[in-house]
Structures are given as structure tokens and as C-alpha cells.
Design a binder for these strands. Structure first.
Lengths: 229, 229
DNA sequence: CGGAACCTGTCGGGAACCTGTCGGACAGCT
DNA sequence: AGCTGTCCGACAGGTTCCCGACAGGTTCCG
């Protein structure tokens, strides 16, 4: 999978590229619109992450020229919270998507995967995470424990997804914070504990089993493991 | 494996380099940002340990220039407990990682190995330590003796991991202290004996075999050896 | 037999963790 | 715009459990 990241802020571009490589993708970064267009021609990405605030040729211009040159590569836009959000909305047909800065990295990767899956064809299959009795459909956002459907808040959903993706590896609270919350969040508090606590209440009320689904590994962090392991 | 350590405090840099060499790696140290950049160019490290508090070009600057010059070498950051931790978090979502000073050397080495394993490719396999009947999965934190799973406290876990990793070499109490506890720990007491004692109780209750898993070499230290050797 | 090295029981301080509560922020609706 | 419900994170109180100081006992060796 080949990813082109376009952002004039090198740390952000690198951040995204690094995460993508960590997932096993090829990734290149561009800091200007011109560079982006050049790389698009040479690198032939399967998907593009495109910041709309660019010096010189801006994001819309880049998109325009990309499309004009006939490439239908899907694009996920990045935008600041204010302003252009409306105009972006108009662009997100055709399988594309957008994200507001600052974003959480897991969120971005999730959207990239969704967009890719959709653009692969009309007959894409659902991506469903499963760990033991738990299942999570990343398209419909349906989460069930056994037969029982659960309704989770956004934060709960993200934390649970992260733990399910990493299962059965133990994740520290710092790692969960870094991946699920927006970058730059100064969470000095016990947010993670709090969300885990709320999750447990929803998850474990369902089953009477003794061992909780999300286990605490004292001094290290949390894991989600299928029962008996 | 080639390691570049960047820290303006020579004792710290040397400490890390020494441990790495002891593990069979090539290691060089730099005490300033400029030196770090020069060495990165000459030495071509596979991984970098980078203190963020540097005189002159600071850690972020070094990282920036490294990335700008196209090198994707993974980095593990060192940082004081206060302040910059948030900014670091933003940088560590990829394969990279960070550690808060003061740290324990084994902790650092463990993270270096994890980062290297991850950046080697998406298809890395789990790292499981085995000595005889004992097995320890460093990702899931599962420790078992034969079939029986053990639950260890953080300190017990670290000491056992250290002994397993060094097995069948005898380690002195001083070495164990230096590697598992944070540097600067004033433990004049018999902490190591204490932890070993507690470990033995957990380990040996499992098997009725006569020889304890962790053996005392009187006058030298402790070893963990597979039975009968 | 005497001392050094080692083992282990106990216990208090404190770290790590859990959970209840509450107010601010935000979205949806009328 | 005003109202209402929901979500989220700050704060604080309570609980569990770790860990290292201390001390007394045991083993080993010269």
C-alpha cells in the first residue's frame, strides 16, 4: 500500500508517514503543492493525505490538478477546525473523507483503511475485529459482546478498538493516551482509567463471568484477552 | 546492531553505550546536537537514543534535521518528567518510543529491542524468552512455568526477565541492581535477595523438583539454569 | 565455632488503581 | 436563540497491593 502525505508542517507529515510505515506501508511526504504533484506522478500512491492549508498552490489546487491529470486516487483531507470545513464537505464524495486538526493518529489510520476498502470496489467486505466473544464492525460501528449489542460513546469506542487491535499485547496508559487522544493533549489526569472503568461496566454487565474482559496488569497497563488466557 | 547515544551528560551516555556493547552492539556517543548529526552521517546507526535536553541544537532540532536528511532511523527519546512530555508524545506514535528519566537500563534496552523488532517489518513475530520449563512473553507479559501461568509484580517481572535473558550466566546482586532499578537508586538493603525470595516462592510452588529454578552461587550471585545443569 | 553470606517474616508508607460526582462543552431539536 | 440530553474530563475519596526497611533465623565455609 502506497501513501503520499502532503503537509507543510514537517513534523505532522513525518508523524503520519511513520505510523503508516509502522503498519507496513510505503510512505513519502511532500511539504508543498508542487512537490506533491511531482511525487504523485513518480510515486503513484494508492491514497493521499492532503492538508488544505498549503503555501503556494493550496490543497484545493492540488486536488484539482490531480483530478485533471486523470488520476482517481482517493484523498483524505486535513483541515483546521475553523473555516473551510464546509467547502471540504463538498469534496468528500466518491469515497473520500476528511479529518479536522488536531486529530488522533488511530482515527486517521482507521479512515484511511475505510476509504481504501471502499474504493477497492463495490463488493468490499466488512472489516470486523474479533476477540473472543467481542466483535466490532468498523464500518457500522456495531459492537457486540456475544449476542448483546453495546452502545459506546466515541471515546469508549476508540479505546476499545485500540485494545482489540493490539490484543493480546499489553498497552500502557501512556500508549493508549498517545494513540487515542489528540496529539498535544496534556492529560495529566486519569482519563484512561476512567474510560476503562466505564467500558468495563458496559462490557461486564453482559456476562456474569468472573474475569473482566479488560484486564489490568498492575504496573504495566491494560490488555484485552479472550477468557482463560 | 549499531547504536548512537545522544546525551549531554557523559556518564549517562556512557552507561547506555556500555550496556549496549555488552550486548554485542556497536555503540558511539555524542554530547551535543552537532556531534550527533555528524556521527549520524558517518556511523549510520540502526537506532538512536536521543536526549531532548541538549545545549545548542536541542533534541527536536536534531530529530528534525535527521528526518530532513532523509534518514528514517528509529529513535527512542529521553526526557525529564516535566514539561516536554506532551510534545514528545506527538512524535512517538510511529515505531518510535520515549522514556522518562531516570530510567532503568533494562527498561531502555527492552524498548530498543521492541522498536527494532517493529521497524524491521510488519511481520515481526512475538518475542518469547525460554529457559527450560519457563517461558516469558514480553508483549503479553504472560509468564508460565510449564503449563502453570504465574502472576508477577513489576519488580519480580523485571528481575526474572533479566536473569532469563542472561541465562546461564551468573549475575551478581550489584549487576541486577544496576540493570533493573533506576540509576541512582540508593538501595543499600537486601532488595535483590528479597525479590529473589519472593520469586522462588512463586516459581517453585509449581514444581516439586528439588533444585530451585533460581540458583544461588554463594559469593557470586544468582543464575537461572535449566534443571540438571 | 565464629563470622559472613544468604533467606524470609513482618509491617508501614505510599504508589497504582478504581469509581462517584459534578460542571462545562457541545450537538440536536423546537 | 433557548432548551435538553449526552459526553468528557477534573477532582477527590477509597481500596488494593507493592516494595523496601528492619530484624532474626539459617546455611555455609574456613
Amino acid at each position: 500500500m502506497r501513501l503520499l502525505v502532503v503537509d507543510d508542517d514537517p513534523p505532522i507529515a513525518d508523524l503520519v508517514a511513520t505510523v503508516a510505515r509502522y503498519e507496513g506501508w510505503d510512505a513519502v511526504t511532500a511539504n508543498t503543492g508542487e512537490e506533491a504533484l511531482r511525487l504523485a506522478g513518480e510515486f503513484h500512491p494508492d491514497i493521499v493525505v492532503l492538508d488544505l492549508m498549503l503555501p503556494g498552490v493550496d490543497g484545493f489546487g492540488v486536488l484539482d490538478r490531480l483530478r485533471r491529470s486523470g488520476t482517481m486516487v482517493p484523498v483524505v483531507f486535513l483541515t483546521a477546525r475553523d473555516g473551510v470545513a464546509d467547502r471540504v464537505a463538498g469534496l468528500t464524495r466518491g469515497g473520500d473523507d476528511y479529518l479536522v486538526k488536531p486529530f488522533a493518529v488511530e482515527e486517521l489510520m482507521a479512515r484511511l483503511r475505510t476509504v481504501l476498502r471502499r474504493s477497492a470496489g463495490p463488493d468490499f467486505q466488512r472489516s470486523v475485529l474479533r476477540v473472543g466473544e467481542l466483535s466490532m464492525d468498523e464500518d457500522t460501528h456495531e459492537v457486540r459482546h456475544g449476542e448483546k449489542p453495546l452502545t459506546l460513546t466515541p471515546t469508549e469506542y476508540e479505546v476499545l478498538r485500540f485494545l482489540m487491535r493490539k490484543s493480546p499485547t499489553v498497552m500502557t496508559k501512556a500508549q493508549i493516551l498517545d494513540h487515542v487522544w489528540e496529539y498535544g493533549f496534556g492529560g495529566r489526569s486519569n482519563v484512561v482509567e476512567l474510560v476503562v472503568s466505564r467500558l468495563r461496566r458496559k462490557l461486564d454487565d453482559t456476562s456474569g463471568s468472573g474475569t473482566p474482559l479488560i484486564q489490568t496488569v498492575r504496573g504495566f497497563g491494560y490488555v484485552i484477552r479472550r477468557a482463560g488466557e
